[in-house]
């Protein structure tokens, strides 16, 4: 039995980790879940960052820079079912507020216009470059399951996971769906 447990990985892109927090609100279900699945990596509950082959990949957060793109693609390659958690991953979320202005303009405003004189726009190759627009996951990779909400409630998260473990693709009805 143990070796057949489905493997799960979760990852957070540009987001507040609120969806993961909300997930922790499922309370004792976490315990059940730990029995039922094997967490391969998850930044909230373990230290492993590298994504390996898993059955279910869960992603939170918006794609806003090239690192996010890379992580998303890696997750897609390594999982069978990809779940987008929360409004950010599903549709872009709060980060899309920046989509009404050009990236350069925003950086200038943040780092030059609205800050003290010495400030510069950060420009280091270690810092990931921003994408032209903040994007939902499916603008980059295929997504199988959408659990929107900001954050999705623990009940909705639990429902989604339960369905997945039953081998079904969960679909949120109108009472569970919130943008």
């Amino acid at each position: 039995m143990a070796e057949n447990k489905p493997k799960v990985a979760t990852a957070c892109m540009c987001g507040c980790s609120g969806c993961h927090m909300s997930f922790l609100d499922v309370d004792e279900f976490v315990k059940d879940l730990a029995e039922l699945v094997e967490f391969q990596s998850s930044h909230v509950i373990m230290d492993v960052k590298e994504i390996e082959k898993v059955d279910i990949g869960i992603m939170e957060g918006t794609i806003t820079n090239d690192e996010n793109v890379e992580v998303a693609k890696k997750m897609r390659e390594n999982c069978d079912i990809l779940v987008a958690w929360g409004d950010c991953a599903c549709f872009g979320g709060i980060m899309t507020m920046r989509n009404f202005e050009k990236v350069d303009k925003i950086l200038e405003e943040c780092y030059l216009e609205k800050s003290d004189e010495e400030s510069v726009v950060p420009d280091d190759e270690l810092i990931p470059t921003l994408t032209d627009k903040a994007k939902g996951l499916d603008e980059i990779i295929d997504v199988d399951v959408y659990i929107p909400g900001c954050p999705p409630s623990a009940d909705v998260i639990r429902y989604g996971l339960e369905k997945l473990l039953e081998g079904e693709i969960p679909k949120l009805d109108k009472d569970k769906l919130r943008y």
Binding site: G93, K171, L172, D173, K174, L177, Y179
Partner: peptide, 25 residues
């Protein structure tokens, strides 16, 4: 972008989106 819209929660379009269970675009 319902998340930062004044009408979030009081919007007939949003209600219909939920009712039609549109979770992807």
């Amino acid at each position: 972008y319902c998340m930062f819209c004044e009408s979030d929660g009081d919007c007939e379009l949003q209600d219909l989106m939920y009712e039609h269970e549109i979770d992807r675009f």
